[in-house]
Design a binder for these strands. Structure first.
Length: 829
DNA sequence: CAAACACCTTAG
DNA sequence: CATCGCTAAGGTGTTTG
């Protein structure tokens, strides 16, 4: 099995030998139990057949390694369950797909066990998959005890059971929440699938793809969660019992329900309480996230192994688009055959899960066909005439079109009255006046997209997904948000939580080898008049969404910078902590951190020499969070932060660009009357607020010494032309500007300069650069550099920021302005 | 008038 | 006891400079 070719060969023959039993609902069985029993027998038989065939083809004798072992694989493993299945049966073992059968399982393979699995598997030999691979490698059955999965809680060291996590200030809250959040899982799975796609794409498509035409197959599980959870639960017939997946019993979302339940009017997204009114017999089952992932892996490997797709585009955990190269001999018979082949392959590889397939000449038509094919079937939208195509599209509802959601649907109906089917919209848009009305309501791009869809064609986004999937699936932003169970009492709570949330996102940034240059903080604020306790337990209720971006001016992967920026942004948004119902952080404008700054261009490498004597790292990549905030334990239950009181006192007057008028200096008398720990609390808080408030603009205008003299519109002669005299902060003489810069550096050695000021200053230099006035730029940079050097012994964080600013933004301006100038000019500084 | 920004919408 | 309302991307309208 060490041989790569042999391994591939195994995969191919493994699939060929699966019994062809997937002719959808026509499988004859009288009850679930019997079906289950038959299914298992068939599987056993096929395993044995496969083993025999393999032995014959490869002339190997009867394997005995795992003889007598009946093995079940739990959760996500490496190698995958699919691969382990092959390994086990090829070496004489028996593979069990379910634990619910009568035959005793001798071993369970798992990488980790959660608390509930730990207790339910207590009487089994639970081992890691290495037991299988190592045994095969050594050619003998190794003692299972050496591969025993001891305790997961020891491995993870965290209590992530939501029931034991008291509230959002619990250090394990974020983990506990995400572990149970279906939406988090959906997003995360998508992230992984896209990531894998991009990685595989580089390997398998490094040759440029010719401008190919495809036939698209949109493949989607029928009520995925419901199917999988029902199979795990094992008690109900998915075709006879109404089933829904949800956490709770009352105001809890139904994430997936089967078609029996839908026949009662139940739908996804409905609360359990209302669903039960429609369908009192509805069975509510739990999520089985590990199993969803395992089945999805089988699903994707099945799609790749069929061999009819040039490319399989990941849409989600249970949904993919297969792209088949178009050939001249395409017939509807051929497409029919391919659809059935896909359905059978998935059914067999996943051991009994049904998918539906939609097939068409565009991504859009494949999607609409899928809708028609559901459930447990397929449909092909292949038309000879435009009229036929229009007729097909016309009978769908507006909301069936991708991109038309609840809100857009409503807007269109409000504008045009009751537009039921797409045909109604087609008729409306015959008149140009209606087209402009539609543009007013949903915008020009959306209108254009709709018009393209009316012809059964793909919009630009779908085209770019298909033509340039590598770019399309590349990550452009990273974010995290939690809008559930968020309840804060003090600004301190917020800071601690923000730090944890930032840590979560920072880890993703680090793991993806990325740096960010722009951070957004997003808050959900309890809407005016909304009840403090919303109908849904711990829910966010009706909220207003607020957000604020911050440009860092440099690419960073520094946890400290990121966390402190988030805290600053929170203060700028000025939402009282107790009104916060949701909180999120986003990173935008990402760059690759592997691409070492110095490598990129000769210029940068040389410019870093400017500061070489300081022996500083030349990028922002060193960044381990020094310590993760631990929760402050309240002194007593009625404890309210003195920071909040202090804050409230200054909340009344609001005159600055920011909503808070915070004193520049802390009142010493006020401070000295406070206990020491409270003093510290205020000082640290004050520091962050100071940064939020600090802006060179406001500061300078407030400062009477720096009252701006109105400069006359003088012009300097440069390069034989008249150029307008530039000014920075209303100051125009070089001397005045230098003084300002020195003050600026002095004022910001501790906390670093404010981004707004940096931008202001850079744009001033840019203008100078445009005019080729390098000597002035040089002079100004030199002024800053000298002043920063003067402060060097102070060892403040702000100095670092100044350095980065000089290297990253000022020197490039200089280089750009005079590319022919030798770099020793820079050294003349 | 382009870029930046805040906010909205969608999908699964 | 309840309950686990995420996240990336594209669009729109307004402000800014």
């Amino acid at each position: 099995m060490n041989n790569k070719e042999e391994e591939q060969d195994v995969t191919a023959s493994f699939n060929r030998n699966e019994p062809d039993i997937a002719s959808s609902s026509s499988v004859g069985y009288s009850g679930y139990g019997e079906y289950f029993h038959n299914k298992e027998l068939q599987q056993l038989e096929s395993d044995v057949q496969f083993r025999q065939k393999y032995q014959k083809e490869h002339r190997v004798s009867n394997p005995t390694l795992f003889q007598g072992c009946t093995i079940y694989v739990n959760g996500r493993t490496n190698p995958t369950r699919f691969q382990l299945h092959k390994l086990i049966i090829l070496h004489g073992g028996t593979f069990k797909h379910y634990l619910s059968g009568k035959t005793a399982v001798t071993h369970i393979l798992a990488t980790e066990l959660n608390a509930s699995k730990k207790s339910s598997f207590a009487n089994f030999k639970v081992v890691s998959p290495e037991w299988v691979t190592e045994s095969i490698a050594r050619g003998k059955l190794l003692p299972w005890q050496d591969f025993r999965i001891v305790q997961v809680s020891r491995l993870q060291g965290k209590i992530t059971d939501f029931a034991t996590v008291r509230n959002c200030m619990d250090p394990n809250f974020i983990n506990a929440f995400f572990k149970s959040s279906r939406l988090h899982h959906l997003s995360n799975w998508k992230f992984q699938l896209r990531d894998n796609f991009v990685k595989e794409f580089i390997l398998s498509y490094n040759d440029t793809i010719p401008d190919q035409k495809y036939v698209y197959f949109h493949i989607d599980f029928d009520c995925f969660f419901a199917q999988v959870s029902a199979k795990i639960d094992g008690k109900y017939d998915i075709h006879a019992t109404p089933i829904a997946i949800s956490h709770g019993i009352n105001n809890s979302d139904i994430s997936s329900c089967n078609y029996v339940a839908r026949s009662f009017g139940v739908y996804n997204g409905m609360w359990v309480s209302s669903a039960l009114k429609l369908c009192p017999d509805l069975k509510i089952l739990d999520y089985e996230f590990d199993e969803y992932e395992a089945i999805s892996n089988l699903f994707y490997s099945a799609l790749k192994d069929i061999g009819i797709f040039k490319m399989v585009l990941p849409i989600s955990i249970d949904e993919a688009i297969g792209c088949m190269l178009i050939t001249p001999d395409i017939t509807s018979e051929l497409l029919t055959q391919k659809c059935m082949q896909v359905r059978n392959a998935v059914y067999n590889v996943t051991q009994g899960y049904s998918v539906s397939v939609g097939c068409g000449p565009s991504v859009l038509l494949a999607r609409l066909a899928l809708r028609k094919g559901k459930p447990n079937g397929f449909h092909i939208s292949w038309f000879d005439t435009v009229t036929e195509c229009h007729a097909f599209i016309d009978h769908f509802k507006l909301k069936d079109l991708p991109g038309i959601g609840y809100s857009t649907d409503l807007k269109i109906k409000e504008q045009f009255g009751n537009v039921q089917n797409i045909s109604d919209l087609r008729d409306l848009l015959e008149r140009p006046s209606n087209v402009s009305k539609l543009i007013k309501v949903i915008g020009s791009k959306n209108t254009k997209k709709l018009q393209i869809y009316l012809d059964g064609k793909d919009d630009d986004e779908s085209i770019s997904m298909v033509k340039d999937p590598h770019t399309y699936f590349q990550k452009k932003s990273l974010s995290v948000e939690i809008n559930y169970a968020i309840r804060f009492k003090t600004i301190d709570d917020v800071d601690i939580f923000l730090e944890r949330l930032a840590l979560h996102l920072w880890e993703k940034l680090r793991d993806s080898n990325l740096m960010t240059r722009q951070i957004t903080l997003k808050l959900m604020k309890r809407a005016q008049g909304a009840p403090v306790d919303p109908p849904k337990f711990m829910g966010m209720g009706k909220c207003d969404a607020l957000s604020k971006v911050s440009n860092l001016g440099t690419n960073t992967q520094k946890f400290g910078t990121i966390a402190s920026e988030c805290k600053t942004l929170f203060r700028i948004l000025s939402v009282p902590p107790e009104e916060v119902r949701g909180i999120g952080i986003q990173f935008h404008r990402l760059t690759d951190s592997n691409q070492k700054v110095g490598q990129k261009s000769e210029q940068r490498e040389i410019t870093t020499d400017l500061f070489r004597k300081r022996d500083h790292p030349d990028d922002d990549i060193t960044n381990e969070p020094s310590k993760v905030a631990e929760p402050h334990t309240p002194v007593n239950p009625t404890y309210t932060s003195p920071v909040k009181n202090y804050w409230d006192r200054h909340l009344k007057r609001s005159i600055t660009p920011f909503q808070y008028d915070f004193p520049d200096q802390l009142d010493p008398e006020f401070m000295s009357n406070l206990p020491k720990d409270v003093q510290e609390e205020i000082t640290s808080h004050h520091k962050v607020v100071k940064k939020a408030n600090r802006s060179l603009r406001t500061k300078l205008y407030d400062d009477p010494r720096k009252q701006i003299k109105q400069t006359q519109d003088l012009h300097f002669i440069h390069d034989g032309r008249l150029v307008p005299q530039l000014s920075f902060q209303g100051l125009s003489s070089a001397k005045q500007i230098s003084e300002t810069l020195i003050d600026w550096v002095d004022a910001t050695v501790e906390d670093g300069p404010h981004e707004k000021d940096l931008e202001l200053f850079t744009s001033y230099l840019d203008k100078l650069a445009e005019q080729g006035r390098c000597h002035i730029i040089l002079h100004l940079i030199k002024t800053i550099k000298n002043r920063v050097d003067d402060h060097y012994n102070a060892n403040h964080e702000g100095l670092e920021q100044w350095e980065y600013f000089l290297i990253r933004r000022l020197i490039p301006i200089l280089n750009k302005a005079k590319p022919d100038v030798k770099f020793n000019l820079v050294f003349d500084l």
